[in-house]
Design a protein around this nucleic acid. Sequence first.
DNA 1: TAATCTATCATGGAATAACATGGTACTAGA
DNA 2: TCTAGTACCATGTTATTCCATGATAGATTA
Lengths: 140, 140
Amino acid sequence: MPLFSSTYTNKVDKKGRVSVPASFRSTLPSDDQSISVVPSLVSKAIEGFDCSYLVQISERLDNYDMLTVSGQPSNPAVKILSRSMTLSIDSDGRIVLPQEFMKHAGISDRAVFVGLGKTFQIWSPEEHKAVMGQGEGELM
Amino acid sequence: MPLFSSTYTNKVDKKGRVSVPASFRSTLPSDDQSISVVPSLVSKAIEGFDCSYLVQISERLDNYDMLTVSGQPSNPAVKILSRSMTLSIDSDGRIVLPQEFMKHAGISDRAVFVGLGKTFQIWSPEEHKAVMGQGEGELM
DNA sequence: TAATCTATCATGGAATAACATGGTACTAGA
DNA sequence: TCTAGTACCATGTTATTCCATGATAGATTA
């Protein structure tokens, strides 16, 4: 399976430990069972992807000026790279979500994994329902 | 056979297991006997297609842009990717239909496979008869 | 042409493996 | 020593794999 797809809801325990859906794991290279995550720049969610994906993002940096005249980063790639973390998947197929990330996404005891092809997102059930529902979330 | 064609009705067992019509299987690449399915956005049916079809959809969301505004739920590509599942065909030529999908299509113990060229649909016999039955009499 | 054989197919049931999840033990740093 | 983080083990449930059966259609042979 080459892409992240479908939607799964898994439990998060007190330590922030949560299973990565098996189908997501199988899309990762077998020699590097880890993922990169970053708080979404546009929504209350966590973005996740294969670690090699970060390389592609960093290459974008080479084509842009790092800073504007005001001294602020002009390129979203700067924010992504500087805020991302790499989480290793343990032998049971789980990761530990950092507290800051859980707070950003409003996650407490459940996490919704949403496959988006080359990337995926992690939402709280409440936020996910709210956002997906507004965009004609119902299937018919 | 390069295209999905014709209509077949097969049995669905208690676990949602159903045979994929042999002619459908033969249209799939021999090195990837699996299909992607997604609840239809417009009808009470399941859409099915070759997995490479999903790759094309995901590429519409350009890599790094998916981490910004384009990765929002209102994007049709996001809807498809987040709702689709890849089902592998077992050695007996069967797939397992997820419960949610069966519910969406109103499938219980029988499934109607309808070939539509590059894609196909899976219906419940009742719904298929109701929708496709109109105008069927004019065929000859 | 008729009978038989063979391969493929659809289907059912049971054994097996994988998955998600909770808990405990261990390690290192403060 | 205490805490936080990590690795290891245990369990029930679900999903996947394997094997067996009857049916059908095509081919082969007499």
